[in-house]
Design a protein around this nucleic acid. Sequence first.
DNA 1: AAGTGGTCTAGACCACTTT
DNA 2: AAGTGGTCTAGACCACTTC
Lengths: 239, 239
Amino acid sequence: MAPTFSPLYQQIKVLITQSLESGEWKPGELIPSEVELGQRYKVSQGTVRKAIDELAAENIVVRRQGRGTFVATHYESQSQFRFLRLKPDEKAKQRATNHFVSFKHIKADTNIAKSLGLNEGESVVYISRVKSFNDTPVILEDIWLPNAIFEGLTEEMLVEYKGPLYGLFEKEFETRMIRAQETIKAIAADDNLSELLKIKKGTPLLQVDRISFTYGDRPVEFRRGWYLTEHYHYWNELN
Amino acid sequence: MAPTFSPLYQQIKVLITQSLESGEWKPGELIPSEVELGQRYKVSQGTVRKAIDELAAENIVVRRQGRGTFVATHYESQSQFRFLRLKPDEKAKQRATNHFVSFKHIKADTNIAKSLGLNEGESVVYISRVKSFNDTPVILEDIWLPNAIFEGLTEEMLVEYKGPLYGLFEKEFETRMIRAQETIKAIAADDNLSELLKIKKGTPLLQVDRISFTYGDRPVEFRRGWYLTEHYHYWNELN
DNA sequence: AAGTGGTCTAGACCACTTT
DNA sequence: AAGTGGTCTAGACCACTTC
């Protein structure tokens, strides 16, 4: 086997990630200073710095000058809308409300299993909800979660919890979403969609499939959302 | 006025960007080594390195170990699909062909002028084309360009040029697109769209508006594309 | 062999926050 | 005043490419 080479700072990055994953430092908490980590891993402060630089670029960790480096969370307003790319065409105050349509435990079908890296038939939590802005339905979202990770999740928790779902996942299930990939298609509303979103059948909708990943590129959520884009748009930056 | 503070490496970054913008180093060319630039700007090599690191992260420049740092281009296969996010559902060989529907000079309306940072009524080049994969129409794209920058662009140049349009812009008009922003909506095909894409009226389509920017965040292209997503999808990564 | 970017270190000083 | 991250420097060595 070839001697697998990897720069020191990458190795340090892996070690830090492992500590994050194991829960040694929880979301919102301060991690040790660069000097301390350098002593711990027996490397210079500059090497730790480079490792943390990359974690900061990936939004896994947040630097604050003079205070220290913190584990990123889904509570911060900063990262609040990182995963919701739908924006109103005209800027206006949006009062968001959620209405839960369905909550049950089901067996993963082929597609869900594949997306979540499970075996077909494994137990998953299925959630369906309508998100409204100013009391007008705009998004219908179906969500599938591996039951193995989200054991104990109840409809009451969903209803009572304020703020983004990812905050709940983080707080109650120690599962942090750090990355996601989406595929987008344009489709026509069917009977079910038209009823739930209170629109005419055949109305064009954005269908957004999202797989969210936690540490180690492990998929932990599959979401299929339908976005009404009459007064909203999906926003993207290409760099 | 407060003493506007800016780190040295940011100032160096601006200086390098200015040289790129002025054409001192053209797309595909090698820029001076870090040591040389350090001597030129009277700073250490490490400071130049940090400036170039950021330019590399923004895809403005490409590092190649042992060779040097090159100005990024739209010819490289690497950056070939940076701005085209439509991918086939099933991986397969895609033979792409373009059919030009329209080419003319017009006056910018309010929306175009606003998008391109022009005054209403200023002259713009208008291009309309259909992109097909394996002879099936998939994308209709309307493109508006400021005539002031793309003076001399002819339909013949478009037809004859092989490769991405951005390559032509770069080569013939010294205009490099380095960043873009998109807004996406789902709409139903109207008469014109259904005719050009050979689909039924009312078929759901992705409508993708894109403003492309060159150095200094100057907008230089407005594009409105309609994507057929029956067998294709828009792909996005959220980090 | 020479030149380039890539990594690593060590030390200095600055800017910001907290005590 | 003490501690943190942010900047800057200088020097060493490594990996890769070209001559």
